[in-house]
Amino acid sequence: MKKTDRLIEAALAGDKLSIARMISLVERGDDQAGRILEKIYPQSGGAYYIGITGPPGAGKSTIVDRLIHLFCVNGYSVGVIAIDPSSPFTGGSLLGDRIRINRDAFKEDVFFRSMSAGRVMGGLSRTAKDASRILDACGKEIVIMETVGVGQSELDIAQATDTIMVVVVPESGDNIQTLKAGLMEIGDIFAVNKSDRAGAEDMASSIKAMLDLAPLKMDWHPSVFLTAATLNQGVDELYEGLWNHYRHLRKEDRLKLRRKNQLRSELVRKVDEIVFESLRDRMNRDENLDLLLEDIWSKKTDIYTAARNIADQWKAGASGKHGHTDEMS
């Protein structure tokens, strides 16, 4: 425990190596993870959490690179978690989000971490959220989570951030219809990147038109920006756009409301996980399980009744223990 505490202490004091190691421990589901997360939680909550997502090849990394620069120029320290959702659960991964990151001038103020979804224990949302909480607690004022919007991961980061920026790119022949509906729904800010290409303005106006039809979330009219990140065009406006949304959230306790809603679902998920893990653990160690399976197989009982019985037994055993589930098994 002492070792863990020393690690936490050093990380909270800003030691990069310790921060990096803590993220690894949490990511890997190490025994120390629980203690780390409990200790850092009270220190977290001060950062502004930004999620950046969009289809592959839209230029998200370049935008992240430019935003890092702007945040640093304005005196903020930045943590980034770049999530690759494509890697399989087993096997290795190849993460390339760092390629585009150049921040020599401000290296002290930036912490960039690559994460593969396949690696993650208990789901991407949990580990990404935990890692960003660590960055927050260790002093990063801005925490960016970046991921490709191709499935679940963008919804996960929407559950973990204050502002979602969706980056899209005008492709010849394509139009707004090809944008995933999910992306349209979660975006607070849209960046039509590579705006030097034909079709960018058309795309921006059709996004605006679509947003006009959608219901407002927290009284916010999502804003749409044209950017050409490689040329450093439109990025200043985008940066201001982020702060506009943040200021909007700060008014009338909207930020608190948004975060509390997120906490609610996080809490449910966490309990889910804990219950699920301990129940599965118990079942796997149950010597009678084979006998029960035999009964189900020979139709002495049915699988539905059997399942309900197991759950009922577990519930009876669990009552009165108030969530200290790891002692239970």
Binding site: I23, S93, L95, R98, S116, R119
Partner: peptide, 22 residues
């Protein structure tokens, strides 16, 4: 293995990445 490919970098940047990526 979990491979983080960082592209062309000079030693200072490589070490920076090695730290943050643990």
């Amino acid at each position: 293995m979990e491979v983080i490919y960082i592209g062309n970098k000079f030693p200072e940047q490589i070490v920076e990445a090695a730290i943050e990526e643990d």
